[in-house]
Simulated scan of single mutants.
Amino acid sequence: MKKLAIGITLLLACAAGTLYFSPTALLTSVQFIERQRAGLSSHEVKVDGLTIHYYEGGPRDGETLLMIHGFGANRDNWLRFARHFSQQYRVIALDLPGFGESDKPDVNYDVASQTERLHAFVQALGISKPHLIGNSMGGHIAALYAARYPEQVTSVALLNNSGILSPRKSEMFAMLENGKPNPLVVRKAEDFDALMRFVFVNPPPLPESLKRHFAEQSMANQQQYDRIFVQLRERYVPLEPELPKIQVPTLVLWGDQDRVLDVSSIGVMKPLLKKPTIVVMKDCGHAPMLERPEETAQHYQAFLDSL
């Protein structure tokens, strides 16, 4: 009750003081409130010489849900989704190396390398047989992890994951093949609004000051993201030969209006998985846990309950 009162007070203060706060202070306040509501707190751990930042909450003796973000994203993408699980499960959402607040050394960030870093992170935290859930690139990593370490996971949930040659080419890949800029990388301020419209059917509302702040952050990371995206393509790991190695139940959830990775990927994945559960969310884009967190959480909880 005390936490709720603190959260409400801060939320009102944020709303009243938006014009007076700097974007950084406003973002810090909003993140604090969202972490409080999700029951998560910030932590960091050193793994193979890299500092990895992550959120954690929920009972430490509960089953672990390990949440893996996508390209250009970070652990904050899971906050509104995670609040539906932290009462029952140990919830962990990390900033992958190269993203968010985690270290960004000059190394390879292809999915195979990130999968091994994720495995080292799991071992460092002493996590036993987590439920993996990943979005986009994070889904690619989650699937590869479950294929490489089939006895070390309990389930996998893949939200609009990369790694599949879809029967119908997505709008993003059509743009890239035609020589157009990567729509996931912000190069100038107005690109941020375009990115939001590209990723979401109904973009989550954001104050203009935060939009500007996120646009500036994204532009500051442009070279890093360009370099990582090149590595992801040059060192691409197809999932088609990997999916049959996954032994555990697998949820494949997709927004049917995804312009980044086409929903037709499901038709390739389903016959390759031993224990698939398929969910298609209508009128939803590339990041269901951000666009419709409560509905996505309901689908995921139903999947967990079915295990």
Results as ranks from 00 to 15, higher is better:
residue 203 P to S: 00
residue 121 F to C: 14
residue 222 Q to M: 07
residue 146 A to K: 08
residue 223 Q to V: 07
residue 134 G to Q: 00
residue 150 P to W: 01
residue 191 D to W: 02
residue 155 S to H: 04
residue 200 F to S: 13
residue 188 K to N: 12
residue 190 E to V: 05
residue 187 R to A: 12
residue 138 G to H: 10
residue 203 P to Q: 01
residue 210 L to C: 11
residue 137 M to G: 09
residue 129 K to M: 00
residue 179 G to L: 00
residue 170 S to D: 02
residue 223 Q to C: 02
residue 142 A to H: 06
residue 174 A to E: 05
residue 162 S to T: 08
residue 186 V to D: 11
residue 172 M to P: 14
residue 215 A to E: 09
residue 170 S to F: 01
residue 186 V to N: 12
residue 208 E to H: 09
residue 122 V to T: 09
residue 215 A to C: 06
residue 142 A to L: 01
residue 198 F to A: 12
residue 215 A to I: 03
residue 146 A to N: 07
residue 193 D to K: 05
residue 162 S to P: 07
residue 206 L to K: 14
residue 225 Y to L: 14
residue 182 N to D: 08
residue 185 V to E: 12
residue 173 F to K: 13
residue 221 N to V: 00
residue 121 F to K: 15
residue 216 E to K: 15
residue 208 E to V: 04
residue 137 M to H: 09
residue 184 L to A: 14
residue 160 N to H: 03
residue 136 S to Y: 03
residue 134 G to T: 01
residue 223 Q to T: 12
residue 192 F to Q: 13
residue 219 M to C: 11
residue 157 A to C: 06
residue 155 S to N: 04
residue 215 A to Q: 10
residue 158 L to C: 03
residue 128 S to Y: 06
residue 156 V to I: 05
residue 194 A to T: 11
residue 172 M to G: 13
residue 171 E to R: 15
residue 121 F to I: 13
residue 223 Q to M: 08
residue 205 P to F: 01
residue 154 T to D: 08
residue 133 I to M: 14
residue 183 P to F: 00
residue 146 A to G: 10
residue 147 A to V: 03
residue 149 Y to G: 10
residue 171 E to S: 12
residue 222 Q to R: 14
residue 205 P to H: 05
residue 214 F to V: 02
residue 199 V to N: 08
residue 200 F to G: 11
residue 127 I to T: 10
residue 193 D to S: 08
residue 156 V to G: 10
residue 217 Q to L: 09
residue 208 E to I: 02
residue 144 L to G: 11
residue 177 E to R: 15
